[in-house]
Computed example of a mutant assay.
Amino acid sequence: MNSWLYLLGAIVAEVIGTAALKSTRGFTVLGPSLVVAAGYGTAFYLLSLALKTIPVGVAYAIWSGLGTALIAVLGWLLYKEALSPLGMLGIALILAGVVLLNLSGKAH
């Protein structure tokens, strides 16, 4: 069970790092740049802990899929980036894929 918490933490850390990327202005602003480095460093560390028991394909699919969906929603909320109905469908399909992957039994 700890591995799943590590994976969840990796997703959150990656989303925090990615959300801060825009504010770095090409890594010319120190504060957000440090948030990006800390976010990605934490994400990869926690992902490595999760990989002790979760297969790499499953963990990476969940990590990247949920991270992508969350950052798309955050971009829409924080930066007022466009999110079309087709984009929303894409996010829903990513989430459905993560659920199906977990239900397939290969995740456990």
Rank of each mutant, 00 (worst) to 15 (best):
A38C: 08
A43V: 10
A10H: 05
S33Y: 06
T28D: 13
G31E: 08
A13S: 15
T18F: 01
V36P: 00
A13W: 00
T24C: 10
A13H: 01
V29F: 07
V15E: 03
I16Q: 02
V15Y: 00
L30I: 10
T24W: 11
G41R: 13
K22S: 13
I11W: 02
I11L: 07
V29H: 14
G41L: 11
T28P: 04
L46E: 02
V35H: 05
A19C: 04
E14A: 15
Y40V: 06
A10V: 08
L21A: 11
A10C: 10
A37W: 02
V29Q: 13
S23K: 12
L21K: 11
Y45H: 07
L34W: 08
G26C: 14
A19Q: 12
Y45D: 05
L47V: 05
S33I: 06
A13C: 15
A10W: 03
G41T: 06
A19D: 00
G39C: 06
A19L: 14
R25Q: 15
K22H: 12
E14N: 14
R25P: 05
A13G: 04
T24H: 11
A38Y: 00
T28W: 04
G26L: 14
G41D: 08
A43H: 07
P32R: 08
T28N: 12
T28K: 14
V15H: 03
P32V: 07
A20V: 04
T18P: 01
F27V: 10
V12S: 05
V36T: 12
G26V: 10
F27L: 11
Y45P: 02
P32G: 11
V15F: 01
S23R: 15
A13N: 03
F44W: 08
T42E: 02
V12L: 15
L46S: 04
L30Q: 07
F27E: 10
L34Q: 04
L47Q: 08
A38L: 15
V29M: 07
S33V: 09
A20W: 03
I16G: 02
V12M: 13
Y40L: 09
A43D: 13
A37Q: 03
A10S: 11
V36L: 07
V35L: 13
T24P: 12
G39T: 01
E14R: 05
V36A: 05
I16Y: 01
A37M: 14
G31R: 14
A10M: 09
